[in-house]
Design a protein around this nucleic acid. Structure first.
Length: 830
DNA sequence: ACCCCTAACTCCTCA
DNA sequence: AGTTAGGGGT
């Protein structure tokens, strides 16, 4: 019923092809390095490392190329005499003094060769001790690792609680997912039907993980009949099934608009000439701003007409109101719903159609919600309308980081009041070493807002977080790459904004470290992918003018802007959408364009028939290569062949081969679907903006140990080593959080940024480093950056401050340019 | 209508 | 720095 995200889809990640192509060689290098490590294990403390360096200069298992890169890109201060280690000081001579005393991140302190040779072992130890602050004494309480299947008392209390409304306050790493899955298992064991359970999450990744864990926990049939999905996915499914019950111009077979499409539509409403748009200047009235305004209005329960009324009374924004009105009209003309409608129309559906509400409330007796602190008002309404027998929500207001899209952790309070919920807590953290957890808690406790009182208890460990100060974003990236080269276990590089990934990627490539970039979109933002999807959308949703305008002249069909404009007007008059208008294009449209369009629309009609006729794939004949006839992959390629897009892309665009490979990648995603399941396929793509990493091992035997992602994307994950880059004022907290704000509004925004850091820090299991650059290049200008205010909130005994000296810039630049000249295709383009 | 180059704008986060 | 929108040439 709720279609699961197909496994193959999860193999996809942003920029998959790029990353794969670029990291082919480095991966081999990495394997070689691994091999030599296992022959001669990496020493785990300063003493052993020092001894082995003396005995065998070659012993650090870094390939020659990498070694060089590291040696001249990263410079160190000698921990003994404080001298700057010269660039020609190869890595072998640098004695790593472990970060945090762990060898996982071993590049922070080094001794110069003379110092190293002069000092005795004990003296070196003293130096190390002086550098390394005394780790806080962690009370040796019996903090044992609980075996996987055993629950602690708090967890058991939550799992076995009666079916009254429950709210569980679950700190980071406290086994929230385990409690959820066990709770479901418990419900099923105590007689609930598996199909009567609905589990709601906020991200696809969380949904997939939950589903996987349920399969381990519960017998397969039951596990598969449990409904698991994101709010958006579940709402979309209900809306598709029951849209008729809704009094609305939106009809069955509606298109779904994601945020990019929403912004584009706002732009059209603002800038197009009057019958179609308002004829304003797009550079003055920013589509993205208006879209976000409309989005928050929708989340606040307004529609275009109620907001127009408000505006008449002088409260609303007249400009937003005008655009809102036209935006809604256009969506209706196109029979499309946007991401916000998906929720609000479902809420309306449940509210105004008692039959529909009864249907779903009857189906789902047990509703569970993960990450409840991230619910927005409309989602809360949906939950309230769905809730019948038992409701079980899990959340942690300290991890609320989605306020910007309307989430309000105060919904937890509303829930407590509305449902009379019982409150339970999970306070034992099985993930992070205690100093990391303490440091993170210190940050989040610096808030002024009311919190759920949690006293978290972490794992044993004595490594305090490192706070690393570097010269600029390139030094920062080099330092990070260097850590990644030597880290044992998995590493995550977390940052506030996606743009920060670029420098790090570059250095990782140079250092030969394979990495995975988790960028929300990326792949789907590529022109060729958007084009192909527009073709499919146009087939599924004939009134989707956005899709039409995108592909009408790709490949070139002599349909220029003038012709498109005329078609828009004719579509408005005909009321049937631009595709229909194109099939019957009349006089102001040039004859050549009109006849080309006729050929185009005829081809689409044929394809649509083909698509509708093919409900199941036809098994391939023996030895027949290529996608299964009747599958979505086959259909997709058929569409591209018959519309001329394939030829256009492969032979007439600059890097046709690469682009075509991306299209093939998309076809792989389409393979599990039958051609007849076009809408399902498009829905899945529309809702999966988030890339999953778990299924990556389908292709890669060894998953890359380094992952790059935003803090938001890291939520719910954990890593051995975490590096949080860019801990600077303006980045974390971000400019937008502090700009043009004061008083309560400012406090709220800064608080959310603070929680963001808390979420990031609590991803770390063993070691954690927070880096910042003194200057950073933004918009082509180098700016001075202050340390993030949140860094001051970490007490001195829970941190280790490190300054990495800047290499002399002149020599660095020379090195840079010479290495740039030498660069092969792999680094071409930098 | 299409192509290329310059100028201006942009970099928050996700379903 | 990197991307895209629009202006000018063909």
């Amino acid at each position: 019923m709720i279609r699961t995200v197909v496994a193959a889809m999860l193999a996809l990640r942003a920029g998959a092809l790029v990353a794969r192509a670029a990291s082919r060689r480095p991966r081999a290098v990495l394997r070689a390095a691994k091999k030599s490590t296992s022959a001669e294990p990496l020493t785990t403390n300063f003493e052993a490392a020092a001894a082995s360096v003396v005995a065998k200069p070659q012993r650090l298992p870094l390939p020659a190329k990498t070694r060089k890169t590291v040696a001249f890109n990263q410079q160190y201060l000698c921990a003994g005499c404080g001298c700057l280690l010269p660039p020609e000081h190869e890595i072998d001579h640098i004695v790593p003094v472990a970060l945090n005393g762990s060898d996982a991140l071993s590049n922070l302190q080094a001794l110069c060769k003379p110092c190293h040779q002069q000092k005795t072992r004990d003296q070196r130890h003293t130096i190390l001790d002086a550098v390394k602050k005394e780790p806080p004494v962690v009370e040796e309480k019996e903090v044992k690792r609980v075996p996987p299947l055993k629950l602690n008392d708090q967890q058991r209390a939550a799992v076995e609680a009666s079916t009254e409304p429950i709210r569980v306050v679950a700190g980071p790493g406290t086994g929230k997912t385990r409690v959820l899955t066990r709770r479901v298992a418990h419900l099923v064991e105590s007689g609930a039907r598996a199909s009567s359970v609905l589990a709601l999450t906020f991200t696809n990744r969380a949904a997939n993980e939950l589903r996987e864990r349920l399969e381990e926990e519960i017998n397969p049939q039951d596990a598969s009949s449990i409904s698991v999905g994101t709010f958006h996915r579940v709402c979309l499914t209900m809306l598709r099934d029951d849209v008729e019950a809704l009094e609305s111009p939106i009809k069955r077979g509606f298109a779904v608009y994601d945020q990019a499409a929403m912004i584009k539509l706002c732009g059209r409403c603002i800038a197009e000439k009057p019958p179609v748009g308002l004829g304003w200047d797009k550079s003055e009235i920013k589509p993205a701003r208006v879209q976000s305004a409309i989005s928050s209005l929708k989340n606040a329960g307004f529609d275009a007409s109620s907001y127009a009324d408000l505006t008449k009374e002088g409260y609303g924004d007249r400009i937003v109101s005008r655009v809102f009105d036209l935006y809604e009209k256009t969506l209706q003309q196109r029979n499309a719903v946007d991401f916000d409608d998906m929720l609000s129309l479902t809420a309306r559906l449940l509210e105004h159609s008692p039959a529909t509400r009864a249907k779903y409330a009857g189906r789902w007796k047990h509703v569970l919600v993960d990450e409840f602190q991230d619910t927005n008002g409309v989602q809360y309404d949906v939950l309230k309308l769905l809730a019948s027998d038992s409701v079980f929500v899990v959340g942690d207001s300290d991890q609320a980081i989605y306020g910007w899209r309307g989430a309000d952790y105060e919904n937890q309070q509303r829930y407590d009041d509305d449902f009379g919920a019982r409150l339970l807590k999970l306070e034992r953290n099985y993930r992070s070493a205690q100093p990391i957890l303490s440091a993170a808690s210190a940050v989040v406790e610096s808030t002024t807002r009311r919190r759920d009182a949690l006293s978290l208890e972490g794992r044993e460990g004595s490594l305090v977080p490192s706070i690393v100060e570097l010269e600029d974003q390139d030094d920062e990236a080099r330092w990070i790459a260097d850590v990644c080269v030597r880290a044992e276990g998995d590493v995550a590089v977390l940052y506030r904004t996606n743009a920060q990934s670029r420098a790090v990627e570059r250095e990782l490539l140079k250092a030969g470290v394979s990495y995975q970039l988790l960028h929300a979109k990326g792949f789907f933002e590529r022109k060729e992918i958007r084009d192909v999807l527009a073709y499919l959308r146009l087939l599924a949703y004939p009134k989707d003018d956005d899709a039409f305008e995108r592909v009408a002249n790709v490949p070139p069909r002599a349909v220029g802007p003038r012709s498109l404009e005329r078609l828009r007007v004719q579509a408005l008059e005909g009321g049937e959408g631009m595709l229909h208008a194109a099939a019957n294009a009349k006089s102001p449209v040039p004859a050549r364009a009109a006849s080309n369009l006729k050929v185009f629309t005829d081809a689409l009609d044929e394809l649509r028939e083909l698509q509708q006729a093919t409900s199941t794939p036809i098994p391939a004949e023996e030895g027949h290569a290529g996608p299964l006839v009747g599958s979505m992959a086959w259909f997709l390629l058929e569409v591209l062949a018959r519309t001329g897009y394939e030829h256009y892309l492969r032979h007439e665009s600059v890097d046709g081969a690469d682009r075509w490979r991306n299209v093939r990648e998309l076809a792989n995603l389409a393979a599990p679907y039958a051609a007849g399941e076009l809408v399902e396929f498009l829905d899945t793509l529309a809702l999966v903006q988030d890339q999953d990493m778990a299924a990556d091992d389908t292709e890669e035997k060894t998953p890359p140990k380094v992952r790059l992602m935003t803090v938001h994307a890291s939520k719910g994950l954990e890593f051995q080593t975490v590096i949080i880059a860019g801990c600077e004022e303006g980045l974390l907290p971000h400019y937008y959080a502090t700009a043009d704000k004061d008083g309560e509004e400012l406090a709220q925004a800064v608080d959310e940024e603070r929680r963001l850091l808390y979420v990031a820090m609590t991803r770390a299991k063993e070691s954690l480093a927070l880096t910042r650059a003194r200057t950073r290049l933004t918009w082509g200008v180098s700016r001075q950056m202050e340390a993030s205010r949140f860094l001051d909130e970490i007490p001195a005994d829970l941190r280790r401050d490190v300054r990495v000296a800047a290499p002399p810039s002149s020599s660095r630049r020379r090195r840079w340019s010479s290495s740039r000249r030498r660069s092969d295709g792999m680094l071409a383009g930098f």
